[in-house]
């Protein structure tokens, strides 16, 4: 497993850069991963998505689908794509420290 350095913190990631150990995650790490994904600053709206994803993951064991983010999380699809350009479900999961989402929708 590759080890990656985020601001001096060494963490294990998989081949695509998703965190291996959930326990490594904190908000500082999220900011560093976001920068790598091209998101300079995490706004209040970003955090709402990240926290909802983490909560769902802890409760259900899988990251929520875009539909669930919309209907249960109250985050409109358009906003989601604007917040995390180029693949919202995967990018947000990566920043939230979750494994790569596996669903087709």
């Amino acid at each position: 497993m590759p080890v990656k350095d985020f601001n001096g913190k060494q963490v294990q990631v998989d081949d695509e850069g998703y965190l291996v150990n959930q326990a490594d995650w904190d908000e500082e790490l999220a900011k560093a991963i976001a920068k790598e994904e091209g998101i300079e600053e995490l706004t209040e709206a970003h955090w709402k998505v990240i926290h909802f994803m983490r909560k769902e993951y802890q409760e259900k064991g899988t990251a929520p689908s875009i539909r669930r983010l919309k209907n249960t999380g109250g985050i409109p699809v358009k906003e989601l794509y604007n917040l995390f350009p180029g693949g919202p479900a995967k990018k947000a999961a990566k920043i939230a420290g979750l494994p790569k989402p596996q669903g087709c929708v």
Partner: peptide, 18 residues
């Protein structure tokens, strides 16, 4: 069960996704 939306909701989501 797989969280696949009904057609009308899916069309809206695909449109909103750009």
């Amino acid at each position: 069960k797989l969280d696949i939306p009904p057609v009308d909701e899916f069309i809206e989501m695909i449109h909103d996704a750009g």
